[in-house]
Write a protein that binds this DNA or RNA. Structure first.
Lengths: 215, 215, 215, 215
DNA sequence: GATGAATGAGACTTCATTCAT
DNA sequence: AATGAATGAAGTCTCATTCAT
C-alpha cells in the first residue's frame, strides 16, 4: 500500500547502493554501473531489467531518497505549532540526517547542470505525482499553513517566503558541510544550536516583517 | 605586474574556451579535452605543455573566472557607502553578468563534490595567494568594513553575517536560474527589482538586529 | 506418420515465430531468443527444453520451412507434363509464396557463411533423411524425370542441368527481390510474366541444345 | 591520383584486415572490432578516428574490394573481342581470384538482408561515384558494348541480358564454392574448363537467340 | 513441465594522455 | 614550441543461457 513496498527488491537494492555510494563520497559523475550493481549485490544485467540506463538508476535513487525524506519530515512538521518550532525541527532533522543532506545538495546541483543524470532527474520531478512531496512543496506547505491566518498570500509573497526559508536551509547546510570539509567559511567553533537559533530567529523576523508591512 | 598579463596566451585561450563552453551549457563532467583545445584554437598536446591534466584546465579556468569577477566587483563595492547599496550593487552586477553566475554555481557544486575537478579546485582555493579575492573573501571584507564602527566582530558573529549575505545571494541566484530554466520555484512574474529590494532589506534587517542585541 | 504431426506444439510455435520474424525483415544475425520465444508465446526456458541453442532454433525453423515448401512443390510438379510447364510452375509458386523466397535466400546465404547458424543448418542438411526433399533434390528429380527418355544422364551432365535451372531460379529471385528493395538491377517496368517466359524458354533451350549435341 | 593512393594507410590496413579475416572464413556477423584492429596492427581507438562504426569499417572494406576488382576486370575485358572471350575471361579471373568470390557473395547477401552492415553497404552503393564500377555496372557495360551493332537495346532487354550473364556467373560461383565446401551440388569430378565452356556457350546462345528474334 | 528473473561475459565506443614529427 | 595521430583502459549495455520456483 505504501509505495515503498511496491518497489521490487532489486530496485530498492539499487537505490540503496546508489545512495550509500554517494554518501560515502563517490562523485555522481564517476559512479559506474559496476560499482552500483556490485554494491547492490545484483548482476549488472539485472539492473538493466529494471532501469533503462545508468542515469535512470541514479536519478531514480535520488528522487526516491528525497521524496521519502520530505514526506516523512512533512508528517513530523504537522505536529509542531509555531513557525519557529517548525523551522527548528527542520534544522534538527537536518542534523540528525546530516548524511542525507548531501543527497539534497546533489539534487540541487543536478537540477542546474546539463548532465544526463540531471535531465533524467528533472523529468522525474516534472512528472511527479501530486502526492509526492519534494523540498519546495514541503516548504510551500509549511508557509501556507503557517500564514493562512494572515489571509491569502499573493503568489509573489508566497514565493519570496519560500525562498527565504530555503536560503536559510541552504545556509545551514553550508554550515554543516563546512564542518565536514573545509569550504572556506571557517565555521569551526560555532555550535550547532547557536546556528539553528540564529536561522530560526531570522526566518521568524522575516515573516513578522511581512505581517507588519507586507513585503 | 597584473596577474592577467602573466598568463601565457595559450593559457588564457584555454581558460576562455572552458568558460565559453560552460556558459553555453556544456556540463562540467562532459567537457572533453578535444572540445576545449578545439575551441581554444590550440593543439591538444599544447594544452598539456601548460596543464598536467584536464582537471587542471577546468579548475584553473573556473578559479580564474571567479577570482577576476570578485576582484573587479570588490573594486566597485568600495565606492558604495551603505550596506544596502553594496548589497544592491552585488545583485545588480549579478544581473548584468548573469551568465557568470553559472560559473559561481558550478564552483559551489565542485567545492562540495568529490570529483577530480572539485579536488583540483579546492587545492587551488586553499593555496590561493592572499591578494586573490574569492566570493567569501569579498563578503567578509564587505561585512568587516561595514560593521567596523560597531567594534571588532567576534569570529562567530562575522561568520554568521557572511553566511546571511551569502544565503541571500544564493537565494537571488536561484531566482535568476529559475527564470532561465524552470526549477520548481515558479518565480515567473516577480520583477527583478522587487527581488533585489526584498533581499537587500532582509540583509539590512539582519544587521540591524545584530546591532541592537547581537546575535 | 506425417512428420509435421511428430513435432511438439512448442517446437512448431518456435519455428513459426522464427519464420514470421524473418519474413518481417528481421535479420538472422540479430534475432534474439527473447524475440523468438516472446513471439512464440512460450517461456525462454521452455525453448531450451526443446533446443540446445539459439542456433538450433533458427536452423531448425529454416530447414523445416524449406523442406515443407519443397516437398509440397514436388507433389505439384509431378502433375505437370513438360519441362517448360514445370519450370513455369516453379516460378509461379515463387511468385505466390514470394515471402518464402526470403527464407530460401537466407538458407543459401547460411550455407556459404561460417556463422554458428550456418554450421547448424549444414549439419541438418547433411544428416537429412532420404525422404526429406530440399531445393537441389527437387530440381534433380525434375531433371531426371524429364530427361529419362534421353538415356541415363552422366553425373556431370546432370549437375550442369541442375545448376542451369538453379541459376535461373536465383535470377528470378533476384528480380523479385529487386522489385521489393532496389538492389541496382533496376528491373522496374518488366512484367513478371515476361520474366517467367524468358527464364522458361532459356531453360528449355539449354536442354534442347543438350539433346542435340550433348553438353 | 589513383584513389587507392588517396586512402590513409590506416584505412587500407583496416580494409585489408577485414578482407583477410573474411577470406579466412570469419563470418561477417561475428567480426569484432578487436579482431579487425588487432589484425590491422592498429589501436582500437585509431579505427574510430577513421570510421564512425564497426559497420562502416566492414561495409567500406567490402565496397572497396569489389570496386577495385570490378574496375580492374573492366580494364581487362576491354581488350577481349568477342562476347565468348569476355565471358571466358570473367570466369578465368573468378578462378584466379577465387578467394575474392567470397567477398562478392557476401556483398550479395548483405544487399538482401536487413543487418546494420547491409544498410551501410547499400548506402555506399547508392551514393557511389559514377566512375566507380560495381558488378552490375561491369556486366551492363559488357552487354552494351557487345550488342551495340544490333541497335539500341530496350531497357527490359538490357536488364534481361544482364541477368542472364549474372545468373551464369552465380552458377559458376556456386560450382567454385561447392568445390571448396560441400553444399549439396556434388560437383566433384567436373573440370573447371568444362564448366567455363558450358557457361560461355550458354551465354552466347542466349544472345544469339536474342539477335534472331528478340527476347 | 514451464517459466522468466538473474547472470556475467563480452561487444562497441569514448577520450585522456603521449610522443614522433 | 606546437601538433594531432595513435593508443588502450575503462565504461555502458546486450543477450544467451541457467535454475529456483
Amino acid at each position: 500500500m505504501m509505495e515503498r513496498s511496491e518497489l521490487a527488491p532489486k530496485v530498492t537494492a539499487t537505490y540503496q547502493a546508489v545512495i550509500d555510494l554517494l554518501m560515502e563520497g563517490v562523485d555522481v559523475g564517476s559512479l559506474t554501473v559496476s560499482e552500483i550493481t556490485g554494491r547492490a549485490g545484483i548482476g549488472k544485467g539485472t539492473a538493466y531489467d529494471y532501469f533503462s540506463s545508468k542515469e535512470e538508476m541514479i536519478a531514480g535513487a535520488l528522487f526516491y531518497e528525497i521524496e521519502t525524506s520530505c514526506r516523512a519530515l512533512y508528517e513530523l512538521l504537522r505536529q509542531e505549532e509555531t513557525l519557529y518550532d517548525k523551522m527548528n525541527l527542520i534544522l534538527i532533522k537536518m542534523d540528525e540526517r546530516v548524511a542525507t543532506i548531501g543527497c539534497f545538495v546533489k539534487v540541487l546541483h543536478l537540477m542546474l547542470d546539463h548532465s544526463a543524470v540531471g535531465c533524467e532527474l528533472r523529468k522525474k520531478i516534472q512528472n511527479k505525482r501530486p502526492d509526492q512531496i519534494l523540498l519546495t512543496d514541503l516548504i510551500r506547505k509549511v508557509v501556507i499553513e503557517e500564514t493562512k491566518d494572515i489571509g491569502k498570500l499573493s503568489q509573489p509573497d508566497l514565493i519570496y517566503l519560500v525562498m527565504t526559508i530555503l536560503s536559510r536551509m541552504i545556509c545551514y547546510a553550508m554550515y554543516q558541510l563546512d564542518c565536514q570539509y573545509s569550504n572556506g567559511l571557517n565555521t569551526a567553533g560555532i555550535k550547532e544550536s547557536t546556528m539553528r537559533e540564529m536561522a530560526c530567529r531570522d526566518v521568524c523576523r522575516s515573516v513578522e516583517a511581512y505581517r507588519e508591512k507586507g513585503f
